[in-house]
Amino acid sequence: MNEEAVFQYIEQYASSEELEEKAAQPDSGIVDLPVVSLAQNPDVLIFDVRNIRILREKYGILGVLTGTLAQYPQQNFFLSVPLKLFIWEVIWLVESGKARLVDQARYRIEKARRLAEGGRIENDNRVLLSKNEKHDNSKNTQENREPNFVVTKNTDTSKKCEDFIAEYEIPLRDYLNAYIKSSSLKIEDILSRYHNFKYLKEMGFFMNPGLKFGGDLVIYPGDPLRFHSYSIVKFNMVDLQDLVVGGRLATSVKKNIIILGDEENSSNDLNDNIEACLNRPPQKVAFSIEWAGFG
């Protein structure tokens, strides 16, 4: 795989000025990651397409689309916002200073309260949609200019309120504690898996969750919209049978399987706090395996 090309191509978009202009927070450049509910649903869901774009093109973070696509609401092939980020993506973005976590429920309720208090409720949820856009400019009568559709927006992008979102920032430590509480994984497993993700991320791969192909991650040499994946990553192999199962499965979907783990004696000292451990990656070793179907 041509790593340099991947880097070049990520950098190309990172430097694109057009992208900077479209950034949601042009001053800080830090992406807001809305956490739905810290106590019950510590998931990060992104609704702002500008942020989805920045994450994808600038940072190579894909996430998974989970919402109904309103244009075609009875199918599951093409989905829409929210974009759900998985835990390793969230930690990586926040830890490297590219994003911050926001307590969305509390922030939005406060924002609504301030709006109502100031008496500044102006709903712009009506739009004009013409059936035939070709005739849009030429044959519009007065009547047709009235809005005819009522809509629900992805997110609120207006600047009706002064910016106070920073008050609702969640420190990474709090977020991790909430995640650990709801997870059955041990802290050392979470750290080890995160470092696996980070190791591959820093090599320039694009990553998706691996359950579709029976692994922990699926990695792509570039944006999966354009490029095939040829590797499934697995973090743990228990025995030889796992090895064969993984190899056969991966080969049947034209991929190879990569086993990734820590070099011996290089794992973290767990007496330190979590944030310190996140910064100290252990040495990683990886092997790729293909099932040798003789004959």
Binding site: Q40, N123, T152
Partner: peptide, 15 residues
């Protein structure tokens, strides 16, 4: 206030 989708998610799945 007309709620956008993000707002609705954050109240609908919070407690």
């Amino acid at each position: 206030i007309a709620m956008d989708l993000e707002f609705l998610y954050s109240v609908a799945f919070n407690n």
